[in-house]
Structures are given as structure tokens and as C-alpha cells.
Simulated assay, not measured.
Amino acid sequence: MEDYIHATRAFLFMGMIAGAVSFFGLCASFYHSHIGSISIKPLAMSASFAAGVCSLIAMATFTGMYSQYIVLGVWYGWSFGLGWASFPLFLITGGLAWK
């Protein structure tokens, strides 16, 4: 299999894990402000930014490499659009969690 597929999978998986940490951290911040000595909100904010960066790297890698194989009449599909939409949404979430 092509190496860019492995890179895309790896960065999307890391982004998915970081996004889950961000989601659960932001949900938990409504009830508690700290887990032990760790503040939840900065952890969730950092995880959201990390998820956005991982998503950007994965989608840019896939787009750059896959566009070489495109022939006329082939479309990326709706999941490709959702992948690109996740990048700015994670960054917006991180920015909103900053405050």
C-alpha cells in the first residue's frame, strides 16, 4: 500500500484520539475544574488544537497525493468534505475553550 495512505491513517487516528480527549475534557469541565493536579480546560484546549493540526496534516497529505491519481469524472465524496471541515472546527473549539 502507498505510504501516503499510512501517513493519512496515522494522523487521522492521532487527531481522533486528541478530539476525543478534547470532547470528554470539555464535558468534564462543566462538573469539575481539576483532575488531581491537572486543570481540565487547558488540557482540552491543547487537545483540540492538536486534533486540528493532525487533521490538517492528514487531509493535506491525502489531497496532495491523491490529486495526482484523479481522472476526469472522479469525485472525492462527502467524507472528504467532512474531513476538511473538521480542521477549522477543531481550531475554533480550541479557541473557544481558551477563554
Rank of each mutant, 00 (worst) to 15 (best):
A51K: 04
F24Q: 01
Y69P: 03
G36P: 08
A18C: 11
I40H: 08
G25E: 01
S67H: 12
I70F: 05
M59R: 03
G64I: 01
A18K: 07
S29Q: 07
G73M: 06
Y69W: 07
A18F: 12
H34G: 04
M65V: 09
I57Q: 03
S37W: 02
S55A: 15
S67R: 13
K41M: 13
V21P: 11
Q68V: 10
Y31M: 08
P42Y: 14
G25T: 03
S33K: 15
A58W: 00
Y31V: 12
S55W: 06
F23G: 03
A20G: 12
V53C: 09
A47H: 08
H32P: 00
M59W: 02
T63C: 05
K41V: 13
A20S: 14
I70S: 04
G25L: 02
I35F: 15
Q68T: 08
A58I: 00
G64Y: 02
I17W: 07
S46G: 07
C27A: 14
S48F: 06
F23L: 04
I38V: 05
G64R: 07
L26D: 09
A20D: 05
F30M: 11
A50M: 14
H32M: 10
A28L: 13
G25D: 00
I70K: 06
S55G: 15
I40L: 12
G73A: 06
S39I: 01
L72G: 14
G52Q: 10
S67G: 07
V53K: 11
I57T: 10
G52P: 14
V21N: 11
A50S: 08
F30Q: 11
S39V: 01
C54H: 10
Q68C: 08
A44K: 08
M45D: 07
I57G: 01
A60F: 01
I17T: 14
A58C: 11
A44V: 14
L72T: 14
K41S: 09
S55R: 12
L43N: 00
L43Q: 00
S22A: 15
A47S: 15
M65W: 13
S46M: 04
L72A: 14
A20V: 14
M16T: 15
L43A: 09
F23C: 04
I38R: 08
S29L: 02
L26W: 00
L43I: 04
M59A: 05
A50W: 01
K41I: 08
A58D: 01
M45V: 13
I17G: 13
A51S: 15
S29T: 02
F62I: 05
F23A: 01
V53G: 07
F23K: 01
L26M: 08
G64N: 06
Y31Q: 12
A20L: 12
Y31N: 13
